[in-house]
Amino acid sequence: MKQILSPLPGTFYRKPAPDQPVYKSEGDSVAPGDVIGLVEVMKSFHEVKSETEGKVKAFLVENEGPVTAGQPLVDLED
């Protein structure tokens, strides 16, 4: 199965800001370069981008959950 991995350790966010909708929901399609969330570390936020295309099957980390580098964030299906 294709997955999107966190490039960094830190805290994962699914929204660009607390009062805005999530970047992607389950069932949404993603294309290479699409932002699926943010990782916060060292007082800055880094966009997590998909390197592949597919459809979001499941988010594996909840909003504001801790993540490590290389940890799967999203399961994708074709």
Binding site: L8, P9, A69, G70
Partner: peptide, 8 residues
């Protein structure tokens, strides 16, 4: 480099 596996 690959992903970080341990340390910082």
């Amino acid at each position: 480099f690959d992903y970080l596996k341990g340390g910082a």
